[in-house]
Simulated assay, not measured.
Amino acid sequence: MAWNEPGGNDKDPWGGGGGNRNGGGPPDLDEILRKLQRKLGGLFGGRSGAGGGEPGKFPWALIAIVAAVLYGLLGFYQVDANESAVVLRLGKYHSTEASGLHWNPPLIDSVTKVNMTEVRTERTTGQMLTEDANIVDIILQVQWYIDDAEAYVLRVADPLKSLQEATDSALRHVVGSESLDGVISKSRGKVANDTQERLQEYLDMYQTGIQINVVNLTEAKAPPEVQDAFDDVTKAREDEVRLQNEAQAYANEVIPVARGRAQRIKEEAEAYKTKVVELAHGETVRFEKLLQEYQRAPEVTRERLYLDTVQTVMSNTSKVMVDVEGGNNMMYLPLDKLAQGGADSAIQRKHVSPAVIEEVSDRVMERIRTEVSNNRRNRGTVR
């Protein structure tokens, strides 16, 4: 039965006794708050009674609840995907939190967030002494990132200052082991690599939590006072390299040609050797066969050899002079003129063929043979 229905005796659920002060209207809000305050005061040790609590008392319990809620809410924090959070509890290392939503008790824990993926750059400049007691101006860039959040936050007081000092120390050690020429031109890459290795050793030894990504030797030059002299040296070195390259190119061009020519001469010599040997072998076989024929018919073979020799000699000359034994006249045969005249006549007349010229030549040779034979016969008769 509702409290305000008939027969309900007008009982107020808020404990107000028999009836509403407002004559049956809705309950008074101030009265409700006072009753709630009295109940809370009773829970937290305050005095309560039918007549209400002490007037003017401050609501400490409500403030405590609100403060507790705010305290709980302030303890939540978010760690991004590229970050790590180092948690200290009462000033002592507690944990390292990964990305996500976390809670820690405020005023008890302190949280330091560190970006683990950002690549930072440090730049170092200065004049340094080389191994050969020369001074060089150097500009060096170091790219690095945080590898260990706990070490970066807690192990060293100032990681950036430690990085700068370690970079300067490593660079001076490496430059002091190289000559000026090497630092400026020949060994720039080696200087950068050695500096990175030594710098990483220093940082690991100091437990800075820093990882070196790359070291770039952006500039290395002599001091301005002697820069002109070093420019001349650099130009001379470039000329030296250029001349060496040109000489090498010329050698690459000439040597293969010379080798090919030598190979060709060698092969020609081998061919000539083979030719001479084969010709000598052929002449030997021919001579042996002629010897056999000569032994069978000396006169015929001697006559044949004589005629073959005359034919060979006459075939290689354009003029022939025949001295007949026992005669006073010498026969002159200008074969080149005869051949030329016969060819011109054949071209002009168009009825003299090469066969006619060959027939004339045969007749001349036959006449010469006849005269030689008659002379020999006459010579034999006189004897």
Rank of each mutant, 00 (worst) to 15 (best):
Leu333Ile: 15
Thr167Phe: 00
Gln164Lys: 14
Ser177Leu: 03
Asn134Gln: 15
Met331Trp: 14
Met205Tyr: 09
Lys275Phe: 08
Asp132Cys: 10
Val372Ile: 13
Glu197Gln: 15
Leu129Ala: 09
Leu305Pro: 03
Pro298Tyr: 05
Arg198Pro: 01
Pro59Asp: 09
Ile184Gly: 00
Leu171Arg: 03
Leu90Glu: 10
Glu97Tyr: 12
Gly19Val: 10
Arg188Trp: 02
Gly17Met: 08
Gln200Thr: 07
Asp147Leu: 01
Thr112Gly: 00
Asp181Glu: 14
Leu171His: 01
Pro334Leu: 06
Ile138Lys: 04
Gly7Trp: 11
Asn252Lys: 05
Glu293Lys: 11
Arg188Asp: 03
Ile357Phe: 09
Asn375Lys: 08
Lys221Tyr: 06
Arg188Tyr: 05
Gly380Leu: 10
Leu88Lys: 01
Tyr332Lys: 10
Gly41His: 08
Met331Gln: 08
Asn134Pro: 00
Trp3Phe: 14
His281Ala: 15
Ser353Cys: 03
Arg198Ala: 02
Ala247Thr: 09
Val313Asp: 08
Phe287Asn: 13
Gly341Cys: 11
Lys113Arg: 15
Ile210Gln: 02
Gly23Ala: 10
Tyr306Asp: 03
Asn328Arg: 07
Ser48Ile: 04
Arg198Glu: 07
Met1Asn: 07
Val356Tyr: 10
Ala64Trp: 07
Asp232Gln: 14
Ala355Met: 13
Val257Phe: 03
Thr124Met: 06
Glu131Asn: 07
Ala157Ser: 15
Val142Leu: 03
Gly209Lys: 02
Ala262Asn: 11
Asp147Arg: 02
Met1Asp: 05
Thr130Ser: 12
Val241Arg: 15
Gln295Ala: 10
Gly260Asp: 13
Pro298Phe: 02
Ala157Lys: 13
Asn378Cys: 03
Tyr77Cys: 02
His94Tyr: 11
Asn213Leu: 06
Glu303Gly: 01
Ser110Gly: 05
Ala157Phe: 01
Ser179Pro: 00
Gly46Gln: 07
Ser99Phe: 02
Ser162Phe: 04
Arg304Tyr: 11
Ile255Asn: 05
Met314Arg: 08
Ile108Leu: 12
Phe230Thr: 01
Thr317Asn: 14
Glu31Tyr: 11
Val277Ser: 14
Met330Phe: 03
Thr234Asn: 08
Thr234Phe: 08
Tyr71Gly: 07
Pro159Leu: 00
Lys235Val: 15
Arg34Gly: 06
